[in-house]
Design a protein around this nucleic acid. Structure first.
Lengths: 261, 261
DNA sequence: GAACGCAATTCGATAATGTCGAATATCCTC
DNA sequence: GAGGATATTCGACATTATCGAATTGCGTTC
């Protein structure tokens, strides 16, 4: 890991947490000399990744990130393929749907379809949710043991009273998730919101994303048609990506670590 | 400018242009040894800024960018203040509205309100348009001579037959833009689409963003009520940001001394 | 199914590069 | 207008990134 780049990335994520910071504040946060931080920030600013807050002398994230992120979304094959299917799922269930991928300990929503009831809802694309508190996260963790073991080792943050923070309890859920290809979550991230998720698989059989349906907790448990719709959606997307079987057979990465061919 | 960070940023923008690239391809593009590029890419990957394309050995932009960009949008004060006004403007004019800021030679759209006719339209937030081909871009250039002079020195790209690529012609437009606080563009970026833009000003009198109304070229020139609505919107947003006068008086020399370094 | 060739990755010596403390400039507060 | 705090500049130094060569891994062809 190249030191300067590592530090630059840390500057970005510090700015992500704090919104607006001066050089000194950043330096304190990162335990680095101010002149070092200054050099890093100016380099990032030169590429639009960081910007001066208008008028002030403090710094914030920069507009280049928006452009990069837009291209990121466009390059995602899963997203392009999934969109029409999640839209249909939202229509048929009357619920909002999500598509998410893993970002370290979180799931980040790369596509969101609003509930088709015409009400005003916040767009969720770009939101990230701690993996252990999300149905999509549980799916992704259940199918990638190396991530899961890493995450379960650390203390888990509680978001609502219902968040499961006990590693053992999560590990048990992972087993059943793998066996039937469905994960659930009840009020574990946001009170009043529960969700069901299923894995999306590519040609190689790797789980590369998760689809989810968000169910108001007042309507929990959802009708079995919702569950079937979700399963079918996940299967359709996976098929379009070239997957031959769904749900995914087993824990692919573990298998890949012991090649027998 | 720190070399390693500069190179890392170049890797990101190369990936932005090419979507998927192998290490060797990137190295060729950047005129660097492969091992150097490899180190940079791996460092970026360690922070989720770059990702391995699933299955392949090539690289693409990473999901961390999406999260950063989401926070970027949230931290923008202008955006939060402007949203309710641009929504109202869209309602009153029946047209789509945009809010944009400068990103080097382009304008990047930080907020977009769809035409309120209920039709399905592509979300434009995150799109970037060459400044010289955009009404918002002309506004921003007209009020920041630093940028303008730099940009007019380089050859300008033509996007449609109507794009103005002659520096002299643009310079003339800038004068009238500053004098009446309104810029226009007819088919210069996209055929069939024209737009009018006005500056958004902060407490210090700096032009920090531009608002625009997009008008189908078939309805050009727009009714004077559209123009008045736009003016009022720009004034309202600016007032909310603490600006005392609108349109902005002139090219503040203090502002011109705000280079990029 | 084996062998070839290309691309990614690892490694270590080298000096170029980023780092950091001190000095200076600039901003904000009182 | 003065004082304190913060941002910025500068240059010597040694840490650190860089790059070429060697190795591994992968896909493709025969």
């Amino acid at each position: 890991m190249i030191q300067a780049i590592d530090r630059a990335a840390k500057v970005l994520s510090t700015l992500q947490g704090a919104r607006h910071l001066g050089i000194t504040e950043l330096a304190t946060e990162l335990w680095l000399p101010v002149s070092t931080v200054h050099g890093i920030v100016k380099s990032l600013q030169g590429h639009g990744l960081v910007a001066q807050e208008p008028g002030g002398t403090r710094y914030m994230l920069g507009p280049a990130l928006l452009k990069l992120s837009n291209v990121y979304l466009d390059t995602l094959d899963v997203r392009a393929r999934a969109m029409r299917w999640t839209l249909e799922l939202a229509r048929r269930t009357g619920l909002s749907t999500r598509l998410g991928v893993q970002l370290f300990d979180e799931v980040i929503i790369i596509h969101h379809n609003q509930r088709p009831d015409g009400s005003q809802q916040m767009p969720e694309t770009g939101l990230s949710i701690p993996a252990h508190a999300s149905a999509m996260g549980k799916v992704l963790l259940a199918y990638s043991p190396e991530y899961a073991s890493g995450l379960l080792g650390r203390p888990l943050r509680s978001l609502t009273g219902a968040t499961i923070t006990d590693p053992a309890q999560l590990a048990i859920q992972f087993v059943s998730i793998v066996s039937d290809g469905i994960a659930t979550e009840e009020d574990e991230a946001v009170l009043g919101e529960s969700s069901i998720a299923a894995p999306v698989v590519d040609t190689r059989g790797n789980v590369i994303a998760a689809v989810a349906v968000v169910v108001p907790s007042s309507e929990w448990p959802p009708d079995s048609s919702v569950l079937n719709g979700l399963r079918e959606t996940a299967r359709n997307i996976s098929r379009e990506l070239g997957a031959s079987t769904w749900p995914p057979r087993a824990l692919q990465p573990a298998v890949a670590a012991h090649p027998q061919s």
